[in-house]
Amino acid sequence: MEVRYSTHPDQAKHYTTEELRKAFLIESLFVAGEIKMVYTHEDRVVIGGAVPAKEPLYLETAGTLKTDYFLERREIGIINIGGRGSVIVDGEVYELNKKDGLYVGKGNKEVKFQSEDAEHPARFYFVSALAHQTYPTKKIDIKQAEPVHLGSLSESNERTIYKFIHADGVQSCQLMMGMTILEPNNMWNTMPAHLHDRRMEVYLYFDLEEDGRVFHFMGQPHETRHLVVRNEQAVISPGWSIHSGVGTKHYTFIWAMAGENYTFTDMEPVDMKDLR
Rank of each mutant, 00 (worst) to 15 (best):
189 N>C: 13
55 E>A: 07
243 H>C: 12
150 L>T: 11
23 A>P: 01
92 E>D: 14
222 H>C: 03
56 P>I: 06
134 T>G: 09
91 G>K: 07
82 G>V: 00
33 G>Q: 04
134 T>Q: 13
137 T>M: 06
17 T>F: 02
90 D>L: 08
38 V>C: 10
46 V>Q: 08
257 M>I: 02
247 G>S: 12
183 E>S: 02
154 S>D: 14
273 K>N: 12
268 E>R: 06
69 Y>M: 07
223 E>Y: 11
14 H>W: 11
100 D>N: 11
202 V>A: 14
65 L>N: 09
260 E>S: 13
204 L>I: 01
49 G>Y: 01
50 A>R: 02
269 P>F: 03
151 G>D: 08
213 R>C: 12
214 V>F: 03
193 A>D: 02
59 L>G: 06
150 L>P: 03
197 D>E: 15
39 Y>C: 04
201 E>I: 01
50 A>E: 00
151 G>P: 07
12 A>S: 10
119 E>Y: 06
267 M>V: 09
40 T>R: 04
10 D>R: 10
145 A>K: 05
114 Q>G: 01
184 P>C: 08
85 G>Y: 05
164 F>M: 14
223 E>V: 01
252 T>L: 03
15 Y>P: 03
251 Y>G: 14
106 K>C: 07
227 L>T: 05
227 L>F: 03
12 A>I: 00
63 G>Y: 04
54 K>D: 15
